[in-house]
Write a protein that binds this DNA or RNA. Sequence first.
RNA 1: GGUCCCGUAGCUCAGCUGGAUAGAGCAACUGACUUCUAAUCAGUAGGUCACAGGUUCGAAUCCUGUCGGGAUCACCA
Length: 616
Amino acid sequence: MDIIGIIQEGVVKGVEALYGASIAGDSVSMNATRSEFEGDFTVVVFPYTKMARKKPEDIGQELGQFMLDTVPQVSKFNVIKGFLNLVIDDSFWQQFLLETVKDSDQFGIGAANGKKVMVEYSSPNTNKPLHLGHIRNILLGWSAYKILQAAGYEVVRTQIVNDRGIAICKSMLAWQRFGEGETPASSGIKGDHFVGKFYVKFEQAFQEEYKAWQASDQGQAIFTEKAKEEQGEAAFFKAYKNTYFNEYSEIGQAARAMLIQWEAGDEETVKLWKQMNEWVYEGFNTTYENLGVAFDKLYYESDTYLLGKSTIAAGMEKDVFYKKEDGSVWIDLTDAKLDHKIVLRKDGTSVYLTQDIGTAQLRYQDFGVERMIYVVADEQNYHFQVLFETMKRLGEPYADGLYHLNYGMVDLPTGKMKSREGTVVDADDLMAEVIAEAEAASKDSSEISSFTEEQRKDIFRKIGLAALKFHIIKVQPQKRMVFDPKESVDLQGQTGPYIQYSYVRINGVGKRAEREGVSWEQAKDYVSLEPAERDLLRNLYQFPALIQEAAADLDPSSIANFCYALAKSYSKFWHDVSIFDAEESAKAFRLLLSKVVGSVLKNGMDLLGIEMPERM
RNA sequence: GGUCCCGUAGCUCAGCUGGAUAGAGCAACUGACUUCUAAUCAGUAGGUCACAGGUUCGAAUCCUGUCGGGAUCACCA
């Protein structure tokens, strides 16, 4: 039994014995003791004043004495106001360390629970490269995968690739018109950036065309006819852009024609589409690889965009859906505080929601997962509410296991990222920048100067990416965050590299212990723990429960904060006590403690997708 | 306008299943390297936890309202 449970049980028995009242174990309010007081755990005794009809101080004294007498792990106590601070005996921590160190690599990793879960954590469009927003998405998803796995789940990692639609047609058309046979290889541009370049070219060409049209007789006539009173010319044409694209634009019409040809399976169009997507995938794969993430299964929208229709037909019979006079099919979710939502157009074609219904079913057929987690930005909260509610009504067996891990948008210090205004931070550029920063900051490190070029590059990559990833993932997913590029490359303070540094120190003492041949046996003779040591042990002790909690909440930021707290605690320990100058039992104990801290830091950071260097 | 999310130090963030004097980092200032890596540590300064009510022995945390920021309310994906 864990120490929290032992204490709670002690309190339950104490309240029973002293005051004749029965309370539930998990109702016992407990916290870690604040650092300014002596103790490891604190029991709040205010709740027992009524049943005891005594002052909180007296209850604390009585309960404390009872715990001291009956719970062997409690070695001391003190009472301040209504707070009973319990000191856990050194032998308990001692034993905990000696147990843990036997298999420190596996410490905290939960046993397989036989449950299967799918995490979808990337859903890129294939018309442009990945940016900072995708990075947050991918890091969260990757970490969720790692955490779920550590908690005992079997996890299938997937992405849905939005490889069809008007956007990619725009890139295709622009390439046809302006590309002059250029390829990523011939131009030396990474494939996804290459295709993105033509997407931008399309937009430019469209804007030019639109500008010219605005000045034309037809454009002016439309403005005079349709503009609302008080609406200026600029405002009108801004609002009219989509209509223009659909009804008047030559290049817009050409792009739409291309989409229709694609849907009809036109050979040449499909060939070009495949070629452009291939280029994009090459680029994406490089980015994913640099970020250190991978997938087990890819789903393509071009394969799934027609799915779901048969389900709608089946759902009609169960009255999940209803048909309007015009032939379109809807679902009424007003009783779930949602609205009516269309699932099939009057021409029988499917919409976004329909595709997602079909895709979920396909995934269940493919893998039999009982949970599916979608890592998608919070702008789609409503869509997922509708999707999940629909799946429930369809009676899908996994419907209760559907979960939208939503996250807030990433802002820049200058405001929102807007692709139209060119303020989007490119994923590849950003990674290159943080790695370059790590290199620049390592200039005067004598440690690194002796390394080979290859080793150095590896270390800079690990440090730079740790800075970037930690900076993003330490923020709770649901919160909108401000991403300051300057802060993201910080290597000091509450950062990834700070944690790496603690690990590297531990690695250093481990190496020295190996050289000097320290005898671990004597660790069991070390009896009087220093505050810094107890603090580390308390931190370590939480790790297994934290993994389960992080998996239940799908919250990687809690792991990030834990890793930082542990590293900070170790830094304090490093300064407060000496390892190799200490007597033999203390030396052995501290080395074992360091070893476990090192393992937990490494495993904890791995849960965030962050690698540790051995030296830095 | 309806619904949902957010508002904590100058800045970036913790803390939110109610518990002690609300914590870190950055930025500023002071001190500590002949010592296991100073990418470190210790200290100073910085707060009406948006505001107003309510519940409670006790509220940053729960409830209601107000204000501010954001998202969404497409036969787009």
